[in-house]
Nucleic acid binder design. Structure first.
Lengths: 229, 229
DNA sequence: ACCGGTCTGTCGGCTAGGCGACAGTTGCTC
DNA sequence: GAGCAACTGTCGCCTAGCCGACAGACCGGT
């Protein structure tokens, strides 16, 4: 699952640019569950996540959300809409207490124009999102529920995974509902598939945090051709 | 369906930048069906489409393709992978005879660093793709086949549509198979839905080109909540 | 310790839509 | 204008998986 690796904007930025960037922004704090922005709002700022996790999603039917991705500390978000203008198509909600740096559109534009490095990194950011989403799209079109969830977990592990001895843990607590919302399936199906994977010894759960015990086995499921039917 | 409008990179570029851009690239010609690049190839160039149409897609199972979008003249493509590095995850195939300007990675990077306008426009390009794909993803997760295809057609019309008296024509010939590959459904279902829409007088087909007769009616289908079941 | 909310586990019924099959149509090539 | 390839139209079977329902588990607040 190439192209899905984490992307730490802040860490890649040389010290001088970084200071400049921070001086242009305003530090804000969001409590768990608060929205940084919502669908329909004008796109006045780009955001840099300093600490916490942000969930980026679209509401479809009321109560149903399609989760695009989770942001990690160091990542930019809200960029895509700001550049193009127009209202936000998506929501950004804090999963836990978050520190965020907000940069107004004008400021951001000025930064991009004067600091090529920032421009390049922003493009990489967008590019990596685009690739990840393209991959997700292809999965959704082609694979059945088991495969989609297996791929989802591997993709998440590539970004949010932390090695722990011989297994990998996702540093991101997820409910079955959220897994379903990312994989494009129902809550019940997600539950079934997850339990099946547990039973087969491929993974385990430590208090809403997924632990991958047998990555190879997961890959086998992820890669088996649909022709297996 | 906001955020899905066409994006003519070339037209937005001031004359001087444009000349510079063109001087850095190499003009190439592709016949119908030829690939500009394929999955797995190293990403050495970005491309600017001068004339023709390019289909951007991922192969899933052999013979099955998930179409991400079609490029129009004036659009950049192959950018996302080039910026990030690594092999191409996608294919770009000429739907008809195409003129393409290819720019090597180094050259492109130099351009971005010295011409802020190019950087900004590239970001807008990526951003608009990202929004469109996000939208598609949400549709795929939430809607049934009818709705997905209605939305697809409206989205395509926003980009590829040409006003013709009181109806809109898509300047892009599409087979049912391709519609299915974009909407994430089977060829047969696409056929059924298209015929149903024809029967209801919402659209017609002129030699593989869709003509929208009743946009409002289409919107009604696109927007009806799934709760309609 | 109690209560309420959120999350998980599990079961059947029901249906959208995938898939194979095949005939008819269109249009390109030689 | 014959032949072929690609595309469309339509049927019917069959299954993945959606959905409602509900019981238990877990957790955080008071």
């Amino acid at each position: 699952m190439p192209g899905a690796s984490a992307f730490d904007f802040l860490a890649q930025l040389p010290g001088a640019d970084r200071a400049e960037f921070e001086s242009r922004g305003r530090r804000e704090r969001y409590a768990r569950g608060e929205f940084v922005f919502r669908t329909g709002e004008p796109s006045e700022c780009a955001y840099l996540l300093l600490d916490g996790r942000i969930k980026i999603f679209q509401m479809t039917a009321p109560g149903r959300e399609a989760i695009l991705w989770f942001c990690l500390p160091g990542e930019l978000f809200g960029l895509a809409e700001m550049v193009g203008g127009g209202g936000r198509p998506i929501n950004a909600q804090a999963c836990e207490a978050c520190d965020v740096l907000s940069v107004r559109r004008q400021e951001f534009q000025a930064l991009v124009e004067t600091h090529p490095r920032i421009a390049l990194l922003s493009m990489q950011m967008l590019a990596s999102r685009l690739r990840a989403l393209g991959e997700t799209f292809a999965n959704l079109v082609a694979d059945d529920a088991d495969t989609r969830i297996a791929k989802l977990i591997l993709r998440l592990a590539a970004v949010h995974g932390e090695r722990h001895g011989r297994d990998v843990r996702l540093g991101l607590p997820l409910t079955h509902q959220e897994i379903a919302n990312m994989a494009g399936t129902s809550r019940q199906t997600a539950t079934q598939v997850m339990n099946d994977l547990k039973r087969r010894g491929l993974l385990g759960i430590d208090g809403h945090r997924i632990r991958i015990d047998d990555a190879d086995g997961l890959w086998k499921i992820a890669l088996r051709a649909r022709t297996a039917s």
